[in-house]
């Protein structure tokens, strides 16, 4: 079984977002970027499937050259090899271009299963996986919290608004996973050492078969007109609870003010 897993390199979500007002874009400082924690769930799920059924897990990432740091993390977890699509003219790509680039590379791998996160932690459009499923002509199983493979059939549980569903499809299939699917393993020291020697196949746009004019900011169909800081007008009133119960008075007063009581 061959599983392709998407691995996005994103600005560390625990740090404040830095924006370049001229470029109308988020500043992506490689030294402050990490493998999307959302993708670690997909990687873990893919590794578990490969461990159970045999097969190979390949990571695919589109991003700056420095995204290899994110890929190494995936490799330290156990991913065998990776493809990184990196090209100056990809900067500023929208969800559609990202899906076109990734799916063209994924198609060349002819995987049985493609695993992605439900949405990226930085962009959270959740549009890339579904668009890729269309381009790859694969059925899609989304918001998946558990995956079982039996021969050529995948059975998954997916979350939905009011509960969960069991869904089934034949391979090949694209699956988006939630954080309930598996607890990502922490890379071992040995894993980290091995990761350094694993192959990353770096490709530019030409190799992917997409022309530069239709990629990146120039080719983006979603255009940013402007980007501004939101004024947060909240005036927080902070009270310390010293155990005397005064804070409860404050909360009750506030609840009354907000007409909740």
């Amino acid at each position: 079984m061959k599983i392709v897993v998407c691995a996005k390199f994103i600005p560390d979500p625990n740090l404040a977002l830095v924006v370049d007002p001229d470029k109308k874009r988020v500043v992506r400082d490689p030294s402050q970027s990490i493998l999307d924690p959302g993708d670690e769930f997909g990687i873990e799920a893919a590794l578990q499937l490969a461990e159970k059924h045999g097969g190979e897990v390949v990571a695919v990432s589109m991003g700056p050259e420095s995204a290899d740091a994110g890929i190494r993390r995936a490799m330290a977890m156990g991913v065998e090899r990776a493809i990184l699509i990196t090209d100056q003219s990809l900067e500023g790509s929208d969800a559609l271009t990202t899906a076109e680039v990734l799916s063209s590379v994924i198609a060349s791998e002819a995987p049985d299963i493609v695993v992605t996160a439900t949405e990226s932690t930085d962009a959270y459009t959740g549009m890339v996986p579904g668009a890729m499923a269309a381009m790859l002509d694969m059925p899609q199983l989304t918001f998946v919290r558990s995956i079982e493979v039996d021969g050529q059939t995948v059975t998954a549980q997916r979350d939905y608004e009011n509960g969960y569903q069991t869904v089934r499809a034949a391979l090949p299939v694209l699956i988006t996973v939630t954080a309930s699917v598996a607890e990502p393993r922490y890379p071992s020291f040995k894993g980290m050492m091995q990761a350094k020697k694993k192959p990353i196949d770096t490709r530019d746009l030409g190799a992917v078969g997409i022309d530069a004019g239709s990629a990146g900011e120039a080719g983006a169909r979603e255009k940013v007109l402007d980007l501004s800081k939101v004024q947060i007008e909240k005036q927080t009133r902070v009270v310390e609870d010293d155990g005397t119960g005064d804070s409860v008075d404050e909360i009750v007063a506030y609840l009354k003010h907000a007409q909740a009581i």
Binding site: D94, A95, L96, A99, E100, S103, Y124, T125, G126, M127, V128, P129, G130, A131, M132, A133, A134, M135, Q140, T142, A220, R221, E222
Partner: peptide
């Protein structure tokens, strides 16, 4: 899910 797959099918941009 419908919107994302539709965008990939029609190859049009989306705003989420």
């Amino acid at each position: 899910d419908v919107m994302a797959r539709l965008a990939g099918t029609l190859r049009v941009g989306v705003i989420a």
